[in-house]
């Protein structure tokens, strides 16, 4: 579903991503982990075309993305969330999700002019139920608590009806109970709805519980890849994380 080949991105002299290759298989949850500054979010932003890679190739759904603009991905069925929340904060919860369905309400003039476009409103309401925000549909997005804002961002991304979901730290800052709900939702999306998920995550509890495959990055490069169990035993990974712990202490 996503193939990254020899991706390199330099900012000036800094090599943010160094010759990274990665294959995400259909209907799997693939996690991208690594210490801070390892280049995970940068890789993400290359896939969603916010950054232009210095070299390398990225194919999404079998299609080379190099000619695409960031807004061309949603119509292809690629949705994303953001590390530091990028909600439409001043708008209502409902409107946030409706905007997520933007590419699906461009049919006729009636559809375009409708405040609640018939083609998408049912799906939007369903998504709000599914992430537990139905009762907040008229609240202002920025007034929600942090966990609900994260769920709203997920619902907004799902309104695209994506085949691929790119999640940038979906569990960061969530409480345990909320992580459990997220865990179930993601599993359901893959098992029942057939989505493919690539996620960047720090919360190991989530990564180890739900990922089919894990890629570990450090200093912009891949240092390990495998099932959660394999990765956990890898000495390079242990060192990268321990090294970071030591640096923090």
């Amino acid at each position: 579903m996503i193939e990254v080949e020899n991706l390199t991105l330099r900012f000036g002299g800094l090599v943010a991503v160094n010759d990274l290759s990665l294959v995400v298989r259909p209907r799997t949850i693939h996690a991208l982990i690594g210490p801070n500054g390892a280049g995970k979010s940068t890789t993400f932003n290359c896939i969603s075309r916010l950054y232009r890679p210095t070299s390398g190739r990225i194919r999404v759904l079998g299609r080379d993305v190099s000619g695409l603009r960031p807004q061309d991905l949603a119509p292809l069925g690629v949705a994303r969330t953001f590390q530091n929340l990028e909600l439409f904060g001043g708008l209502s919860v409902l409107e946030n999700v409706l905007i997520g369905a933007h590419v699906h309400c461009g049919g006729g003039l009636r559809e375009r002019l409708a405040a609640r476009p018939p083609a998408v409103i049912g799906h939007v309401e369903h998504l709000l139920e599914r992430v537990g925000l139905a009762e907040f549909r008229h609240a202002q997005a920025s007034a929600l608590d942090f966990g609900r804002q994260k769920m709203l961002e997920l619902a907004r991304a799902l309104a695209i009806r994506p085949r691929i979901l790119l999640l940038d730290e979906p569990a960061a800052g969530l409480r345990n109970r909320e992580i459990g709900a997220l865990d179930r939702l993601l599993n359901e999306l893959v098992e029942r709805d057939g989505l493919t998920v690539l996620l960047v995550e720090h919360v190991m509890q989530l990564v180890m519980a739900i990922s089919h495959r894990v890629t570990v990055m450090n200093f912009g490069a891949r240092i390990a890849e495998g099932t959660p169990a394999e990765v956990r035993r890898d000495p390079l990974v242990v060192e990268a994380y321990l090294g970071q712990e030591a640096a923090h202490a």
């Binding site: 439409f88 001043g90 708008l91």
Partner: peptide, 15 residues
């Protein structure tokens, strides 16, 4: 309004 609130997110929604 999407563009006003966050152009990066608006792009990600295909706008």
């Amino acid at each position: 309004r999407a563009v006003r609130e966050s152009d990066v997110a608006a792009m990600a929604m295909g706008i």
